[in-house]
Design a protein around this nucleic acid. Structure first.
Lengths: 169, 169
DNA sequence: ATATGTTAGTTTCAAATGAAACGAATTTCA
DNA sequence: TGAAATTCGTTTCATTTGAAACTAACATAT
């Protein structure tokens, strides 16, 4: 049994402090706040996609990302995977270990610099990759059905700009 | 010491399986894939903001969200907080407990239905809220400096459309 | 050479997370 | 009534996460 501080369980007294303390106080409404909206949209989208391949193929999001980037760039190192997936090296290391355990990727060691790994799909890994890609693209396509062609281009440009701005705070 | 499967540590043999198996295989390039781009942008933005208030005020992201939604909607229940923050009830429960521990919010029990809580800023909580809001708004403003006024409107509309689409997959 | 520093990748440890089980209050319906 | 079902919020437990420490390989400077 866990000890629980008594006063944490008690209710507060009635009669409140600031509900909206008079003057023109600054207020933030979350539902219109860009970082919050981005977060909600992203989580919704990520969950939907992850649901598709985690159930069917037993892959976590980091594992899928590694598989995805190796589909586009075979024979890169874990270091390069971190750069291309925006995941930190711990996540990449664990995803790579998991994918190797499942025999979905293979690793060699760079002969020139033996600190570097060289990663690549296994046959099975590649088959799974080729099964998932159309699912992912189809989801993206359906999501973008919400926008017209012109909007899609605008969104593309804006995401690039926002990302650039976000990088240097 | 942890036992490590021998074959996981061995390198794969040279000569590879599919690097790009001939035919017009489907390929997905992450850096252009909308869900991925959203994820990277969101994480960058979230970290930047969280860094600002977690260091200065010792708040986690869930805690800040609860504080934020209570700034806009005082005297709502934890249930309503989950709806307005898109966080699940476990996260909200823990964030509320943490905020109460820090004496930044107060809780009463709804007399009509005693399952419901009624949450509200404490004096200190409200002061901290009023300190953070300008920081958050300023960050959002600087981020949106990347876009012109017309783009900002377009982005607003598109996020709404995308969110709607994402909700029904 | 040998010491010092740097980099790729792994491991450890403590904290955050979420699914499922739970207790308490309320509602539904026979 | 009162038994079964539902809902709010908490807790438990196993998994995921990331910061920091670490190992191994390489680079640089003395």
């Amino acid at each position: 049994m866990e000890e629980i501080p008594e006063d944490l369980l008690r209710d507060a007294e009635e009669n409140g402090p600031p509900a909206s303390a008079a003057g023109g106080d600054p207020v933030l409404n979350l539902e219109g706040f860009l970082p919050y909206r981005l977060s909600v949209l992203t989580n919704t989208v990520s969950r939907a996609i992850a649901g598709a391949y985690s159930k069917r193929f037993g892959l976590s999001i980091p594992e899928w990302r590694v598989l995805a980037v190796l589909g586009r760039f075979p024979d890169i190192s874990a270091k390069e995977v971190t750069e291309r997936t925006a995941m930190d090296k711990v996540r990449v290391s664990r995803a790579v270990a998991a994918l190797r355990r499942k025999a979905l990727i293979k690793r060699r060691t760079d002969a020139q610099d033996r600190r570097f790994s060289i990663l690549r799909h296994s046959e099975r890994g590649h088959r799974i990759y080729e099964e998932i890609v159309p699912l992912a693209l189809s989801y993206e396509k359906r999501l973008l059905d919400a926008l017209c062609d012109e909007e899609r281009h605008a969104l593309d440009a804006m995401l690039t700009k926002l990302m650039g701005k976000a990088r240097d705070l």
